[in-house]
Design a protein around this nucleic acid. Structure first.
Length: 295
DNA sequence: ATCCAGGCTCCTG
DNA sequence: CAGGAGCATGGA
């Protein structure tokens, strides 16, 4: 079949995207290989492997295994555009950042880096819970163990591809198995509560996206285990609120310390002061600061 | 060994 | 309402 193409925006850097995608070997919800990204989608129990080929000015979408229906293909295309935030005009952000002493060097270094999203709400919220209070490598290990335990995937030409577990699958996991996966009891409680809230449609992505930032944040905070940090993480990485700001984030604080060569990490009040000029683009500022920690 | 990791809830005073 | 304990593990 004729491969589908997604046009890349002018402001786009593939190498920076891949730096982010390749940040952990334990990330198995997708895989990369040279200029390719592989992602397994699931539609009504049917697995569709999608291979994204990054060329100079576009992403070519291939389906090495089963071909999707046209309806499914439309969903995949929408997912990819959202995943890599291809439709955001970054010029306003760069205009603001140019005059900000913290962001100016970062946009010089990372111009063309786009916020990598987690388009699925359950996956994004689960990840925010898993990542709480533990270091990132350990969080990635926990996530990998969860994905492997559910094992919702398919082996295609010698490579195993996984889809992220669904809430009904997470609800079937026993306490004992969670312990084996090194999940704390608190996190197990939070994940189960989240799974139920999603299944009961107490929270829905499409609904949250119709709300204002404040309303959506408040709605997320109703969930057990979702505090201000997690809510803003989800608003930023899943729901596309550009003003979302996980202000208490340890990584953000470390990045600010490094960037400004501070002796100590800044306190919350100081962080909020730094962030004042970033108004409306806090999510991108955060993402660029995170990226500055990679090397 | 001690402290801290991409925090949150619950319990004090 | 601010402040602190507990959570579970692992790396520096």
């Amino acid at each position: 079949m004729a491969g589908t193409n997604i046009q890349l925006p002018d402001t786009f850097r593939k190498d920076l995207l891949f730096d982010y995608l390749n940040r952990s070997k334990d990330e198995i919800s997708f895989t990369t290989e040279a200029d390719f990204v592989f992602k397994l989608f699931e539609f009504e129990g049917q697995h569709i492997l999608t291979q994204l080929e990054f060329t100079e000015d576009s992403i070519k979408i291939h389906f090495p295994d089963l071909a999707p229906s046209s309806k499914e293909e439309i969903k995949i295309i929408a997912y990819v555009k959202e995943w890599f935030d291809l439709e955001t005009d970054l010029e306003e952000f760069y205009a603001i950042a140019k005059h900000d002493k913290i962001l100016a060097p970062l946009i010089h270094q990372f111009r063309g880096l786009r916020l990598v999203k987690v388009p699925d709400l359950f996956e994004a919220a689960s990840w925010s819970i898993i990542g709480q209070q533990i270091n990132l490598p350990f969080a990635y290990q926990c996530k990998r163990r969860l994905i492997e335990h559910i094992g919702n995937g398919k082996e295609i030409t010698g490579q195993k591809h996984f889809a992220f577990p669904k809430p009904e699958e997470v609800l079937k996991i026993t306490d004992e198995d969670f312990v084996k996966m090194k999940f704390s009891r608190q996190k197990v409680k939070y994940l189960r509560h989240l799974s139920e809230a999603i299944l009961e449609r107490k929270i829905e992505k499409s609904n949250l996206q119709t709300l204002t930032y404040d309303e959506a944040e408040r709605k997320l905070l109703e969930l057990k285990g979702i505090g201000k940090w997690s809510a803003n993480y989800i608003l930023m990485r899943c729901l596309g609120f550009k003003e979302a700001f996980p202000a208490a984030d340890v990584g953000l604080h470390n990045a600010l310390k490094k960037s400004l060569q501070l002796d100590h990490k800044p306190n919350l009040e100081t962080v909020l002061k730094f962030a004042k000029p970033w108004k409306g683009w806090e999510s991108y500022a955060t993402f660029y600061l995170w990226q500055s920690l990679l090397n």
